[in-house]
Design a binder for these strands. Sequence first.
DNA 1: GCTAAAATTGAGAATGATTATCATTCTTGA
DNA 2: TCAAGAATGATAATCATTCTCAATTTTAGC
Lengths: 138, 138
Amino acid sequence: MPLPIKELFNQKGINLTYQRKLIAETLLKSNRHLGAEELYQLVHKKNPKIGLATVYRTLQIMKDRGLIEKRDFGDGCSRYEDSKAMHHDHLICLKCGAVIEFDEPTIETMQMEVAKKNRFKVLSHRLELFGYCNKCSK
Amino acid sequence: MPLPIKELFNQKGINLTYQRKLIAETLLKSNRHLGAEELYQLVHKKNPKIGLATVYRTLQIMKDRGLIEKRDFGDGCSRYEDSKAMHHDHLICLKCGAVIEFDEPTIETMQMEVAKKNRFKVLSHRLELFGYCNKCSK
DNA sequence: GCTAAAATTGAGAATGATTATCATTCTTGA
DNA sequence: TCAAGAATGATAATCATTCTCAATTTTAGC
């Protein structure tokens, strides 16, 4: 079990409210790449009083403080995931939409080199390979 | 001078029209990461009859046929660029918005390895490092 | 604990990029 | 040349996301 939400938010100076706790927990526990609308559906099921705007606001603030990452898989909405799971990148199938995660430390190392060369301070990155998965390439 | 638009479109089976030619030329010659609206402004200056919808349609079809790539730099609109220039990736400054291109063949190689391992056929990729550029990190 | 100030919320309106519609105009192939 | 199909432009529609604002909750100082 990682740090509880309360600690995480404290560390980042985000006030903890009932809504934010529920939203953050739902997202971080899902282990999926949830879009705002999907997340809203889940949260709304647990507490129908929570509004979509609050979901967006919470995602925004969590992103700003580096707790989560925003991704674009090309399906029209942004998706979010735990930054702690950030050591992985994605293979995205253009046919069936499957998302395969991978982790290649060598690539990370190369990225650091590139950044250094350009005197650039990297805060986060995003690597996506688009194509056809095994099934779909047949 | 690379292949003329006419050839490119022929190869990909895209009918060449006056509008498409102008749009494609403007984008490919710009060497920038143009958004649809920006591109429309440029094209519209040359021929005020061309509509925004046609710009979007042309970008869509060029993307579908692999002539250009769609990017999201997090500023609210998609940007497009020549696929032929695809051997580079991006460093994006979160403060000033500067976009630095880089090219790291080792990373490309690693990507191919990862793809192979996952039996994945890569058609394109996208690598973006977000952070602060030299100026802004001071 | 109590209270005013500040922060947060929910509902719905507003925004803005992108798509769809549809009548009109161009292209293409026979 | 001519009909059939494709492309265009203007505008309406869509849809994710953000903004507004009154009401509610939380926080900080006492």
